[in-house]
């Protein structure tokens, strides 16, 4: 009996602490937004973070995009040719990429590649008193360290998602047209007929922008509030990847329902 009560108490405690952490993250987000102008005025701060977050992620994003596109082409062809409509492969691949896989997989890879690095970097700066030292030098660390990294994530994400989707379409083109031998024209024409700029591409961009905010915030938040020990920083890095991935997948569901609810009746 008492063990049941203990369990419920434990549940309550963890819900409360999760809520408290969410509130802390919200306040942190507001604090970032207050000084988000700083990296825009001092552009070199943003450029540096764009380099480490964005440029350094290009390779993994483009290569992954290619492979995802190629696999989609093989699997899609296998199913579509049963119905004799293998020319629609282009639409299938493009819609999958632009609407879903582009933004989502990019966000997941970005969380693992750049988000974890940002958390580790900020966590180490916290552990070695660099952030405290900056604060004592009357330089706001949120403006100088946190907001450029956050903004770089928001800016990089849609650009990387576009690269992912483009690379995926190209990969599907290689496999579908060059390897399997689907008609070149059908591939593109079906694609262009089936993919709408505003509905599909712009919505995909909005998704990746939202993911950029989520992953960026989680990465800087986990780093800033990481316990100042080696163990604390490493577990914060893991938490960034796990929390970001869950947040991206959940947000994706919400956004998909909101964006495409009227589409299929």
């Amino acid at each position: 009996m008492s063990s049941v009560i203990e369990m419920i108490e434990g549940l309550g405690r963890s819900v409360l602490s999760a809520l408290a952490r969410l509130g802390l993250a919200g306040r942190f987000f507001l604090a970032i937004m207050m000084v988000i102008g700083v990296p825009l005025r001092r552009f070199s701060l943003l450029v540096r973070e764009l380099y480490f977050s964005g440029v350094r992620s290009i390779l993994i994003i483009v290569v992954s995009g290619m492979f995802v596109g190629m696999v989609l082409a093989i699997q899609g062809y296998e199913v579509l040719q049963r119905f004799g409509s293998s020319e629609t492969l282009g639409v299938l691949v493009a819609l999958s990429l632009v609407r879903e896989l582009g933004p989502v997989v990019t966000a997941l890879l970005f969380a693992g590649r750049a988000g974890s690095a940002v958390t580790a970097e900020i966590g180490l700066m916290q552990a070695t008193d660099q952030i405290a030292a900056m604060d004592m030098m009357a330089v706001n660390p949120i403006a100088r360290i946190i907001s450029p990294r956050f903004l770089a994530s928001v800016v990089s994400m849609p650009l990387l998602a576009c690269m992912f989707s483009a690379a995926g379409v190209f990969g599907a083109y290689l496999v579908g047209v060059k390897l399997i031998g689907i008609d070149d024209g059908s591939f593109w024409s079906q694609m262009q007929a089936g993919v709408d700029f505003r509905l599909d591409i712009v919505n995909g961009l909005i998704k990746s922008l939202v993911f950029g905010v989520a992953v960026g915030l989680i990465a800087v938040f986990e780093g800033y509030y990481a316990p100042p020990t080696a163990e604390g920083v490493s577990s914060a890095t893991t938490r960034t990847v796990v929390t970001s991935s869950l947040a991206v997948l959940m947000l994706d569901f919400v956004l998909t329902v909101w964006m495409f609810r009227g589409l299929n009746g």
């Binding site: 180490l124 700066m125 070695t128 008193d129 660099q130 405290a132 030292a133 900056m134 004592m136 030098m137």
Partner: peptide
Amino acid sequence: MLFQFGALFT
């Protein structure tokens, strides 16, 4: 302020 291990920006 001088921090314990210097806290230089790495």
